[in-house]
């Protein structure tokens, strides 16, 4: 399987920048740093199936990241609001839900984002279904997950190539 040069360059640049930040720009660290960066690139390419996965769209990711962050703030506020009320207004339950998003990085991202949403945590992800634990069965869990699914589907390109479980470029 041939590796696209862009996939290698991306990773070399990212891991190089990471090493630079970690070592505070110390020149003496590079004899260790260079082999480490190359090794990290190689390992990441192995894990990502030699760069054959569908790439995340970085621009749309930038646009959607504030949304995720905002939702996690709402999630923490929701827990706090419930906890500080003397009556503890919760009505927990499970919701099982079929997924339309293809397997791979998108699903893992979806499960993580459900965990950040107010009042829901993904409990199990298997066989094209997700089981979600909700703090309050009155919440519009299904509608919220469908909205999230659409947003995450738009993060990935339309290419129907096979997934190998990773979504990074």
């Amino acid at each position: 399987m041939s590796v696209p040069p862009a996939a290698v360059a991306w990773r070399l640049g990212l891991f190089g920048a990471l090493w630079f930040i970690l070592c505070g720009g110390e020149l003496g660290s590079w004899p260790f740093g260079l082999p480490t960066v190359v090794l990290a690139t190689w390992v990441d390419l192995q894990l990502a199936g030699n760069g054959q996965t569908r790439a995340l769209r970085p621009l749309i990711l930038m646009r959607i990241l504030p949304f995720f962050f905002w939702k996690s703030i709402l999630g923490a506020l929701d827990v706090m609001a419930r906890v500080l009320k003397p009556r503890l207004p919760i009505d927990p339950g499970l919701v099982e839900f079929p997924l339309t998003i293809p397997p791979g990085g998108g699903r893992i991202l979806l499960a993580n984002c459900i965990t950040l949403l107010p009042g829901t945590i993904s409990a199990r992800l298997a066989d094209d279904r997700i089981i979600v634990h909700t703090l309050d069965k009155g919440l519009p869990v299904v509608a919220k997950i469908q909205d999230l699914e659409g947003r995450i589907a738009s993060l990935y390109g339309p290419c129907p190539a096979k997934e190998t479980g990773r979504g990074l470029p």
Binding site: S72, G75, A76, V79, M80, R82, V83, L88, I121, L135
Partner: peptide, 23 residues
Amino acid sequence: VGILRFPDFYTRMHAAGKGDTLS
């Protein structure tokens, strides 16, 4: 407070998971 007040394992995870990450 959520970990202390919530009644079972699952609901406590809501408090621990969300509040923790954000804070």
